[in-house]
């Protein structure tokens, strides 16, 4: 690890000014950043400690039913907050299933969205891959068991954020604060496809930080579910995750649908084709099957990760059935 200094900004404006300087990193929970420092994948001269700023660790209800979540809210805080549990259970569950209790006590919502990928080629300090300015993605010809099955190329990482699929499904937006002021974007637009720029995972500009996460009130009658498949019971990244938010009318027809997958693509992967199949149709197991098929229809596995396709399909199907209140049946 290289030497670095930790600096405490006085306010948000000075924090973003400090971060706009070259070779600075924002320090929040420090979970992923410390890993990056120890593996010498990042060697900033200064860490700008956002925890020095007050007020970024709260969840507030603002008029209109919007929840405003501070970027320093921890995953455990998010998972346990009554307002989140009641209005957005899928979001609460996505936080609750991440990592371990110890990590969830430290890791922040902002850090979860801005963390770097887990790819073992990217994490290896001896490998200069596409994401580090090199010329190739080593996963393509290498051991790609945990890599992308959708939207891959030229990099085949999967985005590691547990929260992002649920936030996208909730139609949440982010307030980004930088030296040029604040801008607001949909969470879905925050993430950058490697086709645009393989070296980054999001649109944050130098000096910019996530200042708030805003989650609008759910549509009337909407119900949500988050499911993830892991290799272990705990302390593991998902092999595939799925969020479904559905609203059904009295006839049992779907009037609102959001289907988003995690851990399958370099960005959180929304499945509009699945949503289209659901909308206007009466929800039953056959419909859920068709929607799940559609969600994975474009999957293009690499040599070692085709197994993820049926797993992702199962997660989508189950999330739809659970959100729609239809009993699943063992296959």
């Amino acid at each position: 690890m290289k030497q670095f200094a930790v600096v405490a900004p006085a306010d948000l404006a000075s924090a973003t000014r400090m971060l706009a300087e070259p070779n600075r990193s924002a320090l929040a929970g420090g979970v992923d950043l410390l890993d990056m420092l120890k593996q010498e994948l990042a060697a900033p001269a200064e860490l700008v400690n956002l925890k020095a700023l007050g007020g970024l660790d709260r969840i507030e209800s603002v008029p209109g039913g919007v929840l405003r979540i501070g970027p320093l809210v921890t995953l455990n805080q998010l998972a346990a907050a009554p307002a989140v549990r009641e209005r957005h259970p899928a979001l609460a569950d996505s936080a609750a299933q991440a990592a371990t209790p110890q990590v969830r006590n430290l890791a922040t919502v902002g850090g979860n969205l801005a963390q770097r990928p887990r790819c073992w080629y990217f994490r290896n300090p001896d490998i200069v891959c596409l994401k580090k300015g090199g010329t190739k993605c080593y996963a393509v010809a290498g051991l790609n068991r945990y890599h992308a099955i959708l939207g891959g190329g030229p990099s085949f990482i999967v985005h590691p954020s547990n929260l992002a699929p649920a936030l996208i499904a909730c139609d949440a937006s982010l307030a980004l604060n930088g030296p040029d002021g604040e801008r607001k974007i949909a969470v879905g637009d925050f993430f950058t496809s490697p086709k645009v720029d393989p070296r980054r995972e999001n649109v944050l500009k130098p000096g910019e930080i996530i200042a708030a996460i805003e989650v609008p009130a759910p549509p009337t009658g909407a119900r949500s579910a988050y499911l993830e498949a892991r290799e272990k019971q705990s302390f593991d990244w998902p092999l595939a995750a799925a969020v479904a938010i559905l609203a059904l009318n009295r006839a049992g027809e779907v009037v609102h649908a959001r289907i988003v997958m995690g851990a399958v693509a370099p960005i959180p992967w929304r499945a509009p084709s699945a949503e289209k199949i659901l909308l206007g149709a009466k929800l039953d197991r056959a419909l859920a099957d068709r929607a799940a098929e559609a969600a994975l229809a474009g999957a293009a596995p690499l040599a070692h990760n085709a197994y993820k396709i049926p797993i992702a399909r199962a997660m989508v199907r189950r999330a739809i059935l659970r959100a729609g209140g239809v009993a699943d049946e063992p296959a």
């Binding site: 290498g142 272990k232 019971q233």
Partner: peptide
Amino acid sequence: LNEEYFYDDRGILRNTGLLDYRMPTCLDL
């Protein structure tokens, strides 16, 4: 159930940390 050394076809170990080398913890059993 889970533990395994992953060598790629060049003979390089790819899971060199306990996040990718999956040992059970008290939460798993």
